[in-house]
Every structure is written in C-alpha cells, then in structure tokens.
C-alpha cells in the first residue's frame, strides 16, 4: 500500500494531498479540516457525510479518496458563511430545521442537489430527495418546510436577478 498524490478541489480550493488507497473521501475531507462533513455511520445509511461530488450528492464515506482524484467537491460550508449564508442555509435557520445540527450539512447538500435539478419540488419530491439523510431530532417536518421556503426565495431572487421582478 503506497500513498499517492491526488488533487481535490474542495469548495473552490485546490488541495494536493498524499493519501493511502484505503482512505475514504470522508476521512480525507475531515483531515483537510472540512469538519462540516460529518461522520455518522460510515456505511451510507445516514447521509451525514453527504457532499456534492462533481455536482452529484453522494455519501463521502462510500467514495475512496483516489476515486475522487481531480474532482470538484462542494461541502455545506462551501455554500455559504455566517455573514453570507446560502438561501437554503438561511431557510434552515429560519424554519427551525436544524435542532442538534449534526445531520444538517448533509441534509442541505441533498436539498441543494434537489433544487439544482428541480427548482419547484413537491413535498413528496422533497421527502424522496432527503430519504437518505437520517435526522433523529426534527421528524423532518421543519426540514421540508425549510426546503420549500428556500425554493421560493431562490425563485424570487432569480426573478429579481433576471429583471422580471423587483425594481429595475
């Protein structure tokens, strides 16, 4: 077993790291201090470690870091910050969708993947999209509300942005 230099672009930042083949993307990201990617089960059951890998939401515990060599990775922390949160993050805060907050980063990643594909999802579509993200605190209700609020806000700001609404 020999380490190999691989390149991971995480939240827009390029990292070159020497990793052993048995390192999962989850562990690699956490070692690079992306600790918003949470370890909940390491078997793909809980979704706490979800990231966007080249735009697709995946369990980072089920990806070997080498398999992600050269990939673009987006974690929840890459979406926004305390000063400039992403509309989904803002909606999660407003709707009470984060209780303990441990499932939240993965949950928001699944929400982001959904809204990227389907900007106006139904409740059923939201339930399906987050069905791989376990939450033990909220019972999912406020998470679903948050994703609905986020969808509305993103649509509204797109209208403003395209000049079809708001002030010119």
């Amino acid at each position: 077993m020999q380490p190999k230099m691989i390149t991971l672009t995480v939240n827009g930042r390029k990292h070159q790291v020497a990793l052993n083949p048995d390192e999962t993307l989850l562990n690699a990201l956490r070692q690079l201090n992306y600790t918003d990617v949470k370890n909940g089960c390491e078997k793909g059951d809980c979704g706490a470690c979800a990231v966007l890998l080249n735009g697709k939401a995946v369990n980072s515990c089920l990806v070997l870091a080498w398999q992600a060599d050269g990939s673009e990775i987006l974690t929840n922390a890459g979406l926004g910050t305390m000063d400039n949160p992403h509309p989904i993050q803002e909606a999660f805060a407003d709707a009470g969708a984060a209780q303990c907050g441990y499932c939240t980063p993965g949950m928001i990643i699944s929400a982001k993947a959904l809204l990227d594909q389907n900007p106006h999802p139904s409740e059923e579509e939201i339930r399906e999209a987050i069905s791989g993200n376990l939450c033990r605190c909220t019972g999912y209700a406020q998470i679903i509300t948050a994703i609905q609020i986020a969808a509305e806000r993103i649509a509204a700001s797109a209208l403003v942005g395209s000049g079809q609404g708001g002030k010119q």
Binding site: G47, A57, L62, V63, S110, A113
Partner: peptide, 8 residues
C-alpha cells in the same frame, strides 16, 4: 436504497 446511494 436512497438517492445518495443511487448516485454511486
């Protein structure tokens, strides 16, 4: 499984 697993 789940959408996260289906992507892999």
């Amino acid at each position: 499984a789940s959408p996260l697993v289906r992507n892999r």
